[in-house]
Design a protein around this nucleic acid. Structure first.
Lengths: 203, 203, 203, 203
DNA sequence: TATGAATGAGTATTCATTCAT
DNA sequence: TATGAATGAATACTCATTCAT
């Protein structure tokens, strides 16, 4: 079976290409038809491969969609990590966090609208949607920034979980805007969001 | 047929009761199984009636779910209207808006988690999800409050659409919290949200 | 139960009126929606009574439709009987048969299109369509006319079943014409049909 | 999907076989249960395949039934074309038309009873039954024969549409006879029909 | 490595019929 | 006499998944 071999020897070149191709097809299908309309056959059609190939490469439709989400949010996380790592002061790091997030949304619109659609609509076998299944790890960096800022006295003291939720939620607004209009102008919104966050957090 | 009769003579007592019973079943089913899992048969099972009864009373599954959404958000809107109407000053009105919203979420958890789930996952025939199909009317009151506050100089000047989106989004956080844990303590979150909103908006 | 009482005492006035009203509704529904579309609820709607009333008065949907067919073809048969009874010579009687048939079709278009639709599409519980379940009795008069004409030497000798089938089938053409266009001009067709029949039968 | 592939590369061997198998099942089901009783599951059962296979190969139940009708009447039309093409004189061509028609009915009883049943009972989305939706093309050959015969003075002058309708209708009698009794003896009926037609048409 | 063929479990919806009143 | 309420069985159709090749 493919997955096991991959574990042993790592993916071959063509395999990686095929997986990439299929994930792009999935993103296109979700954007065009919505999560509900993105059936396996539609994804296959958008990918230019047979339905059975999707199952062959990803094991199941669900696994494929989760891979898409994983890939998109990993890329977003990577961009944020890089931006934040370039700063030392908590406020600068928070600004880098927010701006790199919003910038990445603006430059990866198709990926993020699709991934967001999946995150919002997909349910695991237990019926729990992805967007409620946040792992601690996902918010670790933001939590660290906020904590150090509060300890440094540059951010006011407030409930950490609340602060994390508020900031993440506000950044999400950019994705919603892009979902509404794929070519939405994010500049104003970006400024307002960052401004609002800092007004809420600074002492 | 049921719907037409209702238009002519108004609902009978038993009809209202049955509709209520079915809508409760739908809310239960959505909460337990998620929007996707809430098939007609599951809703019927949770309601204690036959599948065909749902169609008999609501015409279609979609119509039923939209009725649920409509009912839940009408109640929320009503609570907000009442609270806001008791105040005159923009800041007081905004506070009443936010607090009544958050309070209503706390006292109607099942209804709002279900309705929110539907709003987020349901697609109309055009494929557009409900939460992207916001009507101007839905945000009219909030827009009016923010506008008058800005004109009065009590709120700082900022993009009105951005302000509306930010405030609504932040209030939504309470629903997300309840979706995560149905018995979540909303007191802290409520205080933090209201505080954050006012810090962001006041001059 | 209604039917049993009717057997005992004969139908009351209002009962007859109701049955009439419902049969008219059925004819309207079949003409407007076709046999397939003429569901019990549609017939009820066209009749202005409740679905359950149809069952109450006729026992079942099938029984109702059979009553309609029966009524319509009885009226046609009556018109033919009257016209034929006025003639003595076989050729005159056949002409009276054909012309009264075609005339009746022209003056009872709605009834006959509906009845014909039912006859053609309806299946008994055994799966046998009505138009194949012809009773001997239905063709008795035509058979008698043809027989006496052949015996008198005015019609040529030919297979009696074939002759009956051919004549009936040819007269049916008028109904088909009306089904195609409810306001079809039957004059030409009538002349051609009668002419054709006589050319085929006369010695 | 099956249909699209077929357009691109032509049907594969197994595909053709499966389609044949399913169409035979449909013919059997219609003959046994009538158009109404021939549900997708019954057709599947008679075909020995799963319901979903019917949809896989034909797209929908309606498409399948229309394919059956199309196939059966194409074969009939082909037989007629061949027979008629061998003759030159209008009367000979008409005789070839009628006799090949009636002969084909006799040798393809199951196909024609089923197809006729479908034609008579099936309604398009507009509610118009197939047998009323006759295309000009369907009667083109017969019209041409009759026209040329009238012009040559061998057939008497009469309304062309009436003549076409009468002849087609009379030939249909053979199908009705077979529907009534699948092993009906068509020899006599054939002779009588052809005879009747010529008596009615010859000058 | 890749897929075409086939399916079974599931979907929403329709509809004639029943029954208490 | 008449009906509103309710349903169970049936309908066509969808779709993720399997499997032989």
């Amino acid at each position: 079976m493919r997955q096991e071999e991959r574990d042993r020897r790592g993916p071959t070149f063509t395999e990686t290409a095929r997986r990439e191709q299929i994930m792009r097809g999935a993103i296109d299908a979700v954007n065009e038809l919505g999560y509900h309309g993105a059936s396996l056959s539609e994804i296959a059609r958008h990918s230019g491969v047979a339905k059975s190939a999707l199952v062959y490469y990803f094991g199941s439709k669900d696994a494929l969609l989760l891979h898409v989400v994983d890939g998109v949010y990993s890329a977003l996380g990577g961009a944020i990590d890089t931006a934040v790592a370039a700063e030392r002061a908590p406020a600068d790091r928070l600004r880098a966090y927010a701006e790199s997030y919003l910038d990445h949304v603006g430059t990866h619109r198709l990926e993020l609208t699709a991934a967001s659609d999946i995150v919002v609509s997909h349910r695991g076998p237990d019926g729990v949607p992805l967007y409620l299944a946040t792992e601690d790890e996902d918010t670790a960096l933001l939590r660290a920034i906020l904590t150090s800022g509060m300890e440094a006295g540059v951010f006011r003291a407030m409930s950490l979980p609340a602060a994390v939720a508020i900031v993440e939620n506000m950044l999400d607004l950019a994705i919603t805007a892009v979902q509404r209009r794929i070519d939405a102008d994010l500049d104003t919104l970006t400024r307002e969001i960052v401004d609002f966050i800092f007004r809420g957090l600074l002492v």
